[in-house]
Write a protein that binds this DNA or RNA. Structure first.
Lengths: 169, 169
DNA sequence: TATTGTTATACTCTATAACTATA
DNA sequence: TATAGTTATAGAGTATAACAATA
């Protein structure tokens, strides 16, 4: 229920033409988002989603979505890593990694080998095919990012990376 | 860039003593994520999620999640805005906004009034209660963000906001 | 014909509890 | 007892197609 009664909905005054500066109900032309733009979380999320949108498009040929890519890349650069370590490094939850790992293995991109020191754990290793795929995929991702940040200088890009890491690391 | 440096650690070693440093199947101690850290999308997403995590906690008392907050804030600063305008400004899809708007209206935080110039559209206005809530919520959000970015100077914070906007705007 | 708001729905992503087998 | 990996499942978030009312 209303309760406010602060704007005259069906009241007197100009009913015909009020297009200059006054309007009874207000019509907004240029939306003001200055407050949201002062929030780091809002900007970081919008920027991330903007990049991810292009990422999805460009990495689709490799059959890799952002999380698949980050997992595969970490295995690529850390042969023998365990899924528990992946979870800690990438901030993922174990149950959500199971299907992902199985999928990568089924595609022949990784291999699961017994862990040398811990019988419970399983070491994840990239196959030759997985390595070849990631070399291309990482190049594609890096290119896409440079393109998406083309309005930034190399120095600004580096600054941005450093500052973002100061927030979450 | 500089992606390598850690890859070929196929040192002979691997004796009986698989407790010292190396092993036949490889056991990874410190995970190398330098490549992912060179990607803007990865860092922006991690930073955003880190902030959002605290956001969810601090804004829970107001019953506002990130999207609710951004919608409510935009209505707060743009009385009379339409849902179509909200979608364009916040990059949301119309169907996903319907239930959200209904919820905010049911809570007495906003009012729907006929649009002055367009019979199809509906103007969204904050109620006094909605305004009061958002004044507090926005203060809480701003405080939380300053806290979360405490490792940054005010100048760095401003730089970060500007650079992020150069990516998605 | 194009647009606003809406319904219904499907798909994805993320989160929680509980089980097993090893340590 | 604690940890690695797994299973099952619930919930939230995001997506597309189609429709009615208005422009």
């Amino acid at each position: 229920m209303a309760t406010t009664a602060k704007t005259a909905t069906r009241s007197p005054a100009a009913r015909k033409s009020k297009k200059s500066t006054e309007a009874t109900t207000a019509a907004v032309d240029p939306i003001d988002t200055t407050y949201l733009q002062s929030l780091m979380g809002y900007n970081a999320r919008r920027a991330a989603l903007s990049i991810i949108e292009l990422f999805l498009e460009r990495l689709a040929p490799y059959g890799l979505k952002p999380v698949d890519f980050s997992v595969m890349s970490t295995i690529h650069h850390n042969p023998g890593v365990t899924s528990r370590q992946l979870c800690a490094a990438l901030n993922l939850l174990p149950p959500n990694l199971v299907g992902l790992i199985q999928s990568l293995e089924a595609r022949g991109l990784i291999e699961r080998k017994p862990h040398p020191h811990d019988g419970r754990a399983v070491g994840l290793h990239p196959t030759d095919q997985g390595i070849a795929l990631m070399q291309q995929a990482e190049q594609t991702a890096s290119d896409l990012e440079v393109e998406k940040t083309s309005r930034l200088t190399a120095a600004q890009r580096k600054t941005l990376l450093d500052l973002l890491q100061k927030i979450y690391l």
